[in-house]
Design a protein around this nucleic acid. Structure first.
Lengths: 225, 225
DNA sequence: TGTGACGCAATAATCGATTATACGCAAGCG
DNA sequence: CGCTTGCGTATAATCGATTATTGCGTCACA
């Protein structure tokens, strides 16, 4: 997900930049995406911009309304709950498969990812807000590592897409919920080493549901109404 | 899904036509999609074609390889199994939600969809192969009706996308498996009327797994190797 | 003063042309 | 004789221009 890759063409990098700009909230939910403006901002022709927007439309990060142009997908409480529900469904399923399948390499990936995530959590706890985005990046890498042995490219891809939509809501909650979340990450690490997928799933569910509650209670997250 | 809508612009209808052409096998798996050829075939400019292909790339019905163009997504046994697994996961979950939520309108949609599907199944059983595509259309409508009360647009959208990828494999099995499938449809209808989601899920799982076995045993479905 | 038709400005959709990249073949060199 | 390097063609990527649509503001008329 997330990281724009260097070498790619204009089209690919425009797509990636637009995507992260939506996920990280630099493009406001429900705002109009005017092609001419975007061309100036992103330094690509309208055709290229349209290509990127069309791809984002399929992912439902952008809405295309008839002949009336493109809009950033709005953010609503209902959508958040739906997305979280899907993330739980997909990630729990992947967890089961992955725990049954994982080898020592897999364990190594998890330990490594957790270590890096933990470092970021420490910096976040020390109010070093500059690492917000990389913290979320490492959060993704950890969750990704846990399910990386599920042996289903389709499942991983679908999960990645849902995760990013969930992330868009997370990114708007400016307050740090790290204490509880960090403990849950630690517990999932332990459960993974024990290959106890039921325990991991229980923790994951409450991990995500906690994140949802945190967002719903946070007035920054849902601007409308 | 499926049906190309009339009124839309060139871009939308090109996208829909390309999509159904891939799903229904009119464009061979793994074949190269040359832009100039497609422009002639579909009567739209390269930019418009590219727009459509980019959208299909996001859905993983088309693969975009670096600067080397577009390819129809290949079909493999592993992909079929993964997609079927996802369909079971998503559709079972949606079934649970829908059965808990559905009102009388919902029941009406199911009864109606089943009736139309049943008619098609009869014609298929009588070797009227001309209705193959509409039969699959009604199959989709029935499954869609069952989960239509799940009250999650995101889940329905994700399910639709996975269903269509599954359908691509189904469309290649030229032999009719309708007898068993028709019975399962009937049983799901009954389970829906009884609001017995556990029963419906059991049937659905074996319904889909039966379809997968049928495809895996059918040499028409997986051309490679 | 309200309403509807008209036209203008803004913006989207679509296109064809231009530039860049990749691939195959052939010629030169080891 | 095989490998590499350079050239030409085929194809993709990107762009700017052209056409179509929409939405708003204004003016005429009831």
């Amino acid at each position: 997900m997330i990281l724009p890759s260097e070498d790619a063409g204009v089209g690919q990098s425009t797509y990636e930049t637009l995507r992260t700009d939506i996920i990280f909230g630099r493009l406001a939910p429900a705002s109009k995406l005017k092609l001419d403006d975007l061309r100036d901002t992103y330094g690509a022709s309208v055709s290229t911009i349209r290509e990127a927007l069309n791809r984002l439309t399929t992912e439902e990060l952008v809405l295309a309304e008839g002949q009336r142009g493109f809009f950033v997908a709005p953010m609503t409480a209902k959508d958040l709950v739906e997305i979280a529900d899907l993330r739980i469904l997909l990630e729990c399923h992947a967890l089961t498969l992955s725990f049954a399948n994982g080898d020592t390499e897999w364990e190594g990936r998890i330990v490594s990812a957790h270590h890096k995530l933990h470092r970021m959590e420490q910096r976040m706890a020390a109010n070093d807000v500059s690492v917000r985005e990389s913290w979320k990046q490492y959060d993704w890498e950890f969750h990704q590592a846990l399910i990386s042995a599920c042996d289903s490219a389709s499942l991983l891809s679908l999960h990645g897409s849902v995760f990013d939509k969930y992330l868009r809501y997370q990114m708007r909650s400016l307050t740090f919920r790290g204490d509880k979340a960090a403990r849950e990450h630690r517990e999932m690490l332990d459960a993974a080493m024990d290959r106890d997928s039921e325990r991991a799933k229980t923790i994951l569910r409450s991990h995500i549901e906690g994140g949802v509650r945190h967002c719903l209670n946070n007035p920054n997250v849902l601007p409308n109404r």
